[in-house]
């Protein structure tokens, strides 16, 4: 957590300087949240859009920020929701898209349009295996191991019990290992 940014943002908020708060937060956490969204979404255009939406929403909700958590946790909570929403919308879109384009009988079902798009924008076997996790599980895994956030903080961000998140992550990593091995990536 960027302590100086947190302090400066709180002082600016106390003065009602919302724009200044936003600028401080964008400078301090913009890149971090972008990488988190990129890992969650694996789609450059969707990441750009969602990342900007996170800060637009932050600006909108600043007046309701109570200071119970850090700005960082608050922003990650917004980012988590927006990323899950974006994934949901994309999944619905591609479901509809695929439903309209019925494959002829006997055709080899190729990877879904969603999968093609995702794979084209961000490769890597680990990323592909993460895609196989549900969005909620993927989010927990990334918050824990990409961002290094504690379970106490994750519970605030996700609005779930720390124990639930621990079980989620504990099941996900062996699943990732199995997925990597299935792709021919040897375990260390």
């Amino acid at each position: 957590m960027d302590e100086s940014a947190e302090t400066a943002a709180r002082q600016a908020l106390a003065k009602g300087e919302r724009r200044m708060v936003l600028d401080i937060l964008m400078r301090a956490y913009g890149d971090l949240l972008y990488r988190h969204c990129a890992a969650m979404l694996r789609d450059a255009a969707l990441t750009d859009e969602t990342h900007q939406t996170v800060f637009v929403q932050a600006w909108r909700d600043l007046e309701r920020f109570k200071g119970d958590s850090s700005f960082k946790s608050w922003l990650f909570a917004i980012a988590r929701h927006r990323c899950l929403d974006a994934l949901k919308i994309r999944r619905r879109f591609f479901k509809r898209f695929e439903a309209r384009e019925t494959l002829p009988d006997g055709a080899d079902p190729s990877p879904s349009a969603e999968a093609k798009l995702a794979h084209a924008s961000l490769g890597g076997p680990l990323s592909r295996c993460l895609d196989k996790l549900t969005p909620e599980v993927r989010s927990a895994v990334l918050l824990r191991y990409r961002e290094g956030i504690s379970y106490t903080e994750m519970a605030d961000i996700a609005g779930e019990q720390a124990g639930t998140l621990q079980r989620r992550v504990a099941r996900a990593l062996p699943a990732l290992r199995a997925c990597l091995e299935a792709q021919g990536v040897a375990s260390p």
């Binding site: 972008y34 990488r35 890992a39 680990l126 990593l173």
Partner: peptide, 16 residues
């Protein structure tokens, strides 16, 4: 190892 690799995921991604 996987936990470590997750830490480097999307490390080069950057906003415009």
């Amino acid at each position: 190892a996987i936990a470590g690799d997750l830490g480097g995921l999307a490390a080069d991604a950057a906003p415009s």
